[in-house]
Design a binder for these strands. Structure first.
Lengths: 197, 197
DNA sequence: GTCTATAGTCTGATAGAC
DNA sequence: GTCTATCAGACTATAGAC
């Protein structure tokens, strides 16, 4: 999943330090939360000093912002794609399928976003971007003039796939099977909402 | 919602300081996150000193734990109630109705729990309690031998009501209407899961 | 039950040598 | 591009007066 080869070279190649910082930072952010992860910890994992981090990123927040932009790009592309499709049920179903795939590819980032909402919301540079993305996505799925229940159904469809990845750890079973099950439920929900119109 | 009378007396009555600390702490925790809320801020809002906080609570974590226990009690009672009911569809629907009501009553706490999962998970005293509660709740709703999709439907039913309270802010409309809509969707989901057996 | 004062630690961030 | 050394500030928590 991460693109860092761990356990191989001890000091490793030059030129990819920025990438390695991102990898380690995301891993620690997702595991222990943004606030509880200090730059010292990130630096120690990489066997460099804090000052080295500041060469590549202006601030701690900047590291997170770069992750959000780099790993979140597929989602922006998905939103752009959805915006130029006809607003049919088929489009919405395809949006959910692609969303599910995007979620899986960037699982650590989404896990982080899900579990650190309070932090992200307070971060000036990221909070609004995150909100805008979720808003744009839900706008592509729901119809503003549908009944409230059907709108809830559509938004729930989106969030059920988040739950499918993370909060569903309570259910035993293969993660890929659970992902498919969550997608199936999401597709059902949006179909029901469509028929309710 | 909160039980603190704000804006009235400036220094106010003695003896309810513990309660007032809880009120202010929950408000700030929910608003800005646990980590970003310092004891200094809590003390300043109450017009007391940090040391006064330490008279009533052993640590910062202890404040959160007390909130979790005091405000979460209705949920524990709900779980206990559910455990001694027959596992019928009607029971599950009633569980969802009561859960929705409990969620509304303790909205700030649940908002906090939802938005600070990473923090809560790392807090030794609370993380496990929280996990146990959610696990017990989902165990009352889902059937272990049902299809994966139906189990996802049941867990989604629970989480959709969380979303109904917080993540659904993207949808305009009266909060109480949204709560009802979310409950309706949740009841539908658990009914479908029941029929799928 | 609430205060002052402070200990001790860690944080994000900077300056400047190599 | 990475280092050493250091900064000021914030934090939790404690000791002890009143």
């Amino acid at each position: 999943m991460g693109s860092t080869a761990r356990g191989g070279e001890p000091k490793a190649r030059r030129g990819d330090t920025r990438q390695r910082i991102q990898d380690v930072a995301l891993e620690l952010f997702a595991e222990r939360g943004y606030e509880k992860t200090s730059l010292r910890e990130i630096a120690e994992h990489l066997e460099v000093t804090k000052a080295a981090l500041y060469y590549h990123f202006k601030t701690k927040e900047d590291i997170l912002l770069s992750l959000f932009q780099d790993l979140g790009r597929p989602l922006d592309e998905l939103i752009a794609w959805g915006a130029e499709q006809p607003r049919t049920l088929e489009t919405k179903q395809e949006l959910l399928r692609r969303y599910s795939a995007a979620l899986t590819n960037a699982a650590p980032l989404f896990r982080f976003m899900q579990e650190n909402q309070a932090t992200v919301r307070e971060l000036s540079s990221i909070g609004q971007l995150f909100k805008d993305r979720m808003f744009a996505m839900s706008d592509l799925i729901r119809e503003h003039d549908a009944s409230l229940s059907d709108q809830v159904r559509c938004v729930t469809a989106l969030f059920s796939m988040h739950a499918g990845l993370f909060a569903l750890q309570t259910i035993e079973g293969d993660p890929e099977d659970k992902r498919k099950a969550a997608l199936e439920v999401a597709l059902d929900l949006v179909t029901q909402a469509h028929q309710g119109q």
